[in-house]
Amino acid sequence: HSHMSHTQVIELERKFSHQKYLSAPERAHLAKNLKLTETQVKIWFQNRRYKTKRKQLSSEL
């Protein structure tokens, strides 16, 4: 499990705020920019979407 830097997370968050789903080319581009693997980016987005979904569910209770 590799640790992401604060800067990388900020960039991922910024991208996520604009779009929740990335196409393969977008993911490849973002990964390259942030010096991450595409898998890391993919998993981060999956986890981030899951967290957002959970938060929405709990706020509706």
Rank of each mutant, 00 (worst) to 15 (best):
N33L: 15
E38G: 02
L61Y: 07
S23C: 06
R54V: 09
I10H: 11
L34S: 00
L57Y: 06
L30R: 00
Y50S: 14
K53F: 07
L12W: 02
Q40E: 07
R14C: 14
S59Y: 07
P25E: 14
Q8P: 01
E11G: 07
P25F: 13
S58Q: 12
Y21L: 03
Q19M: 07
T52M: 14
Y50K: 15
N47I: 13
V9H: 11
K42C: 12
W44S: 02
H18A: 08
H1K: 13
S17N: 09
K51Q: 14
L57T: 09
T39M: 13
I10T: 08
Q46L: 06
L61E: 13
K15F: 14
S23I: 02
Q56L: 14
N47C: 15
R54E: 10
V41Q: 00
I10K: 11
H3I: 08
S2M: 12
Q46P: 02
R54I: 11
S17G: 06
K20R: 10
L36H: 02
N47H: 14
E38W: 04
T52K: 09
I43R: 10
T37I: 02
L36T: 02
Q56E: 12
H3V: 08
N47L: 12
R14K: 12
R14H: 10
R54P: 10
L57M: 11
I43Y: 09
A28V: 07
Y50I: 14
Y21C: 06
L57S: 11
K51L: 11
A31P: 01
N33V: 15
K20T: 05
K15G: 02
K55R: 09
Q8F: 03
L61V: 14
L36W: 03
K15C: 15
E38T: 11
K53E: 11
Y50V: 07
M4H: 03
H18R: 12
E60C: 15
A24P: 10
T39W: 14
L36K: 01
V9R: 10
Q46G: 04
R49F: 04
V9D: 03
K35F: 11
K51W: 13
K20A: 07
V41D: 00
E26W: 01
L36N: 00
L61R: 07
N33M: 15
E60I: 07
L61W: 03
S5D: 06
K53A: 12
R27T: 10
K55Q: 14
L30Y: 00
L34Q: 00
R14F: 11
Q40F: 06
K51F: 09
L36E: 00
E38C: 06
Q19D: 05
S58P: 15
H1N: 08
S59R: 05
T37A: 03
F45H: 00
K35V: 04
L34A: 02
N47M: 15
K32Y: 09
L22Q: 01
Q19N: 09
R49L: 05
K20E: 07
E11N: 03
K15I: 15
Y21F: 08
V41H: 00
L30I: 07
K51E: 14
S5H: 04
E26M: 05
H29T: 13
Q56H: 14
L30G: 00
T7N: 11
T7W: 15
A28T: 06
V41W: 01
E60G: 13
N33Q: 15
K35Y: 08
K20L: 03
S23K: 06
K42R: 15
R49I: 05
R54Q: 13
H29G: 06
S5I: 03
N33R: 15
L30Q: 01
Q56F: 09
F45Q: 01
A24R: 12
R48A: 11
T39H: 11
A28C: 11
T7R: 10
K20Y: 05
E11Y: 06
Q56P: 11
E11M: 09
S23G: 04
L36G: 00
L57I: 11
E11V: 07
S59F: 06
L12F: 01
F16W: 05
K55M: 12
S59G: 14
Q56W: 11
K32D: 05
S5K: 03
Q19P: 03
T7E: 13
E60W: 08
E13N: 05
E13Y: 05
V9P: 01
E11H: 06
S17M: 13
Y21E: 00
E11F: 06
Q46W: 09
Q56V: 07
E11T: 06
Y21W: 11
K32S: 07
L57P: 15
T37F: 03
T37Y: 02
L22D: 00
K32W: 06
Y50R: 15
M4A: 03
E11S: 06
Q56C: 15
Q56N: 11
K35Q: 12
N47V: 09
A24N: 07
T52A: 15
Q56Y: 10
M4S: 00
K15W: 13
K35L: 12
R14L: 08
I43Q: 09
Y21H: 06
W44N: 00
N33S: 13
R48N: 03
K42Q: 09
V9G: 01
E60V: 05
L57D: 13
T39P: 04
W44L: 02
F45W: 10
E13I: 08
E38K: 04
L57E: 12
I10M: 13
Q46I: 11
L57F: 08
T52D: 15
A31C: 04
K32H: 10
W44H: 00
Q40M: 05
K15L: 12
E11D: 03
T39S: 08
S59Q: 12
L36Y: 03
L57H: 08
S2K: 12
K20S: 07
E13W: 06
F16K: 01
T39D: 10
H3Q: 10
R27P: 00
Q19L: 10
H3R: 09
E60L: 15
P25K: 14
E60R: 03
S23F: 03
S17P: 02
Q56T: 06
S2C: 15
A24T: 06
S2A: 11
L22T: 01
T52Q: 14
K20F: 04
L57K: 14
L36C: 05
L36M: 07
L57W: 05
H3W: 13
H29P: 01
F45L: 00
H29R: 15
N33G: 06
Q19C: 15
S2Q: 12
E26A: 06
R48H: 06
H18N: 07
T52W: 15
Q40T: 05
H29S: 13
K32P: 01
V41G: 00
K32A: 11
W44G: 00
N33C: 15
H3N: 11
K55C: 15
T7S: 11
E26Y: 02
K35H: 09
V9I: 14
S5T: 13
E60A: 07
S23P: 03
H3A: 10
S59W: 06
W44K: 00
L12H: 01
H1R: 09
P25S: 15
S23T: 11
I10F: 09
H6V: 10
L22N: 00
L30K: 00
E38A: 10
Q8R: 04
V41I: 11
T37K: 02
R49W: 04
H29D: 10
A28P: 00
E26P: 00
R27A: 09
P25H: 14
Q19H: 08
L34R: 00
K32T: 06
L12P: 02
M4K: 02
V9Y: 09
A31F: 02
E38Y: 05
L34F: 02
L30M: 05
Q19Y: 07
A31I: 02
L36F: 01
K51D: 08
H29K: 14
L34I: 04
H18F: 09
F16Q: 02
R14T: 05
K55T: 12
S5R: 07
F45C: 04
Q19T: 11
E38P: 13
L36A: 01
S23A: 05
H29L: 14
P25T: 14
A31R: 01
L34K: 01
K32N: 08
R14Q: 05
S5Y: 05
F16V: 01
L57N: 13
H18W: 05
Y21R: 05
K32Q: 09
T7D: 11
S5C: 09
R27K: 04
V9T: 09
T52L: 14
L22I: 05
W44Y: 03
K42V: 05
H6A: 12
A28S: 08
K53I: 10
L12S: 01
K32R: 10
K35M: 11
R49P: 00
R27M: 13
S5A: 03
Q19G: 05
L12A: 01
Q19E: 03
M4Q: 02
H6W: 12
K32M: 10
Q46H: 08
L12Y: 02
R54Y: 09
K42I: 07
A24V: 07
I10R: 13
A31G: 02
Y21S: 05
R54W: 06
F45R: 00
A28W: 05
P25I: 14
